[in-house]
Design a protein around this nucleic acid. Structure first.
Lengths: 201, 201
DNA sequence: TTTTAATTAATACAAACGTACTAAATAAAA
DNA sequence: TTTTATTTAGTACGTTTGTATTAATTAAAA
């Protein structure tokens, strides 16, 4: 029998090498050759795991999505009050550490380029999460009365995504110290018992 | 004397052809050949106006920026109450018509790709505009007291950019009817005399 | 150790790319 | 009409790209 290599694990290593390359050189720099070099593999070796460049990039993009989803779901699983969880959830979306910066940068490049290779379908897992969270908050009696759910969700989503993008492109201006009070103040508009920013810094 | 062609005008036509191509095929599809074809020019002819692809793309990006700035400044010049102007300014940022959709899409592709060719420097003309607008609103006695200017500017900017991006990628969900109330409600938090959404639809 | 199938390495090739170069065409001035 | 500088068109070259192919290497099973 031949040398055994964990196929799936190797595919992930190659995908991660692709991310690094996107960070360093952009999508234009991610040729099959440069990816192979980054992953310390030969061209033929790489082809054993991905039969085409398109398949590699698709997989690579899918893996970013998985990792981000994984990270967000982990936050959801934490045992804490719902209102607090909401803020932590938002902070998890904003690229404040190197790992999430990489993920968002790569994701940014993918959606800009991949939509012409395959049909791009909006993800909006975040939107779905918000649509689940707010009713729970209301059921727990933590929301002020008379809130337009759909409008508030759309507002929160836009605000957080806007902060995330600005944080990505101007991290020196939008630090965590600037972002947390903005989010907390905004969430507090909806809550009966306001939260304190200092808890999240 | 030779045939006279308005050089600058022709350069703009070529740049606009480049935008169309970016919309249709993405940055990867914008080769010097395809641009020449889109602009009904020969390869050699195109080279007369841009000595390299990089120069063409730089110019093309610069022109988008100019057009957008032009559009926003035109809004600023309109004679209307400052609070009303603020909302119109925000609505101008959001890609609600074909022209601004094109501009934002093209801009999106450029910042994703150009940052690796040349050093990308954040523009933030919007941020500067907001930093000018709010003090004027206050001087006119239209703002509620006790507002944290820097924080509110950052919030408004993030919200509007977030709405703009969501509108770009999910225009069927984020219609003008959904966006206007969100912006007006948010601006009204700051104003002594609240505005009515219906004025902007 | 020998066998064997999976893995790796190396090379080759057609297509597409940016760029360069040269001849033809153009239109305003003499 | 002739002249002339500019614009246009066509072709060619060297690279780089994705993909294909083939031989060498590897390590688990016999």
């Amino acid at each position: 029998m031949p040398k055994q290599v964990n196929h799936e694990e190797r595919r992930q290593i190659i995908a991660e090498a692709t991310w690094e390359l996107i960070m360093k050189k952009g999508i234009e720099g991610t040729t099959v050759r440069s990816i192979a070099e980054e992953a310390n593999l030969s061209l033929g070796s790489l082809r054993h795991y991905f039969s085409s460049q398109e398949e590699l990039l698709s997989y690579s993009m899918e893996l970013v999505k998985e990792r981000v989803t994984e990270r967000l779901e982990k936050k959801f699983a934490q045992d804490m009050p719902m209102d607090e969880l909401l803020v932590h959830f938002f902070l998890e979306i904003i690229p404040l550490d190197d790992q999430s910066r990489l993920e968002m940068t790569v994701w940014f490049h993918f959606i800009a380029n991949v939509q012409f290779r395959h049909k791009f379908e909006g993800d909006d897992g975040i939107l779905q999460a918000l649509q689940q969270l707010l009713p729970v908050l209301e059921a727990n009696g933590r929301l002020k009365p008379g809130i337009d759910f759909q409008e508030e969700i759309e507002t929160l989503y836009a605000l957080v995504d806007g902060l995330a993008i600005h944080c990505l492109f101007a991290p020196e201006r939008l630090t965590k110290e600037r972002i947390v009070p903005i989010i907390v103040k905004h969430v507090n508009r909806l809550l009966i018992h306001p939260l304190n920013s200092s808890r999240f810094l």
